[in-house]
Write a protein that binds this DNA or RNA. Structure first.
Length: 174
DNA sequence: ACCATGGGAGCAG
DNA sequence: CTGCTCCCATGGT
């Protein structure tokens, strides 16, 4: 198992791999990860990632091995079908799969390989939804950056993190 | 129980 | 009719 840091326009990326397969991508690497990530960054890992940031809509050909339940694999496969520059709502994915929007959200949250599995292209029907486990803050700024980078026009509900509601406040704030 | 939701009801302008 | 608030059904972990 090896790890490396890759500097990108949207922040540092932590990448973990086993032999020649990527198992995890961290959008917000912890200091502990930074210390550990001193290994070499092989070409097969670096090139596709740098290429994505240069030309986001070219195919991202990174060999990945993602572990997840059968349901999660099903959701992730569906996310990979979303074309670059487009978004889908949690509900739309859910209908397509015959499940519920929240279940889709949970599967997105469990995604170990952002970018490769483009969960940033999934948004809520009235808001941006979450990203990398968060609903507010820096990670959401990244989500916006990625979408914009891919050519999505961020209008209306997508410019803010999430429509404020008393529901959220009573369940504990950011 | 917990959720990265959605749709509907009720209410004020 | 529009734009808020709640409020709860939902399906997978």
């Amino acid at each position: 198992m090896s790890s490396a840091l890759v500097e990108t326009p949207c922040g540092p990326l932590g990448v973990v791999w086993d032999r020649d397969l990527v198992t995890r991508i961290e959008l917000d690497p912890t200091p502990a990860f930074m210390q550990d990530a001193t290994g070499p960054r092989p070409d097969w890992l670096l090139q596709p990632i740098l290429n994505y940031f240069e030309r986001p809509c070219a195919r991202l050909e990174l060999p990945v091995h993602v572990q997840g339940t059968a349901f999660q694999q099903r959701v992730w496969a569906e996310l990979r079908q979303i074309p670059c520059g487009q978004t889908r709502t949690y509900g739309a994915i859910a209908r397509q799969l015959g499940t519920s929007p929240r279940a889709v959200g949970q599967a997105c949250r469990a995604n170990p390989c952002p970018l490769v599995i483009p969960c940033h292209r999934v948004v809520a029907v009235s808001g941006l939804g979450g990203f990398a486990g968060d609903l507010h803050g820096r990670k959401l700024a990244m989500k916006r950056w990625l979408l914009k980078h891919e050519g999505v026009v961020l209008d209306g509900s997508l410019v803010a993190d999430r429509p404020g509601s008393r529901d959220d406040r009573s369940r504990g704030g950011p």
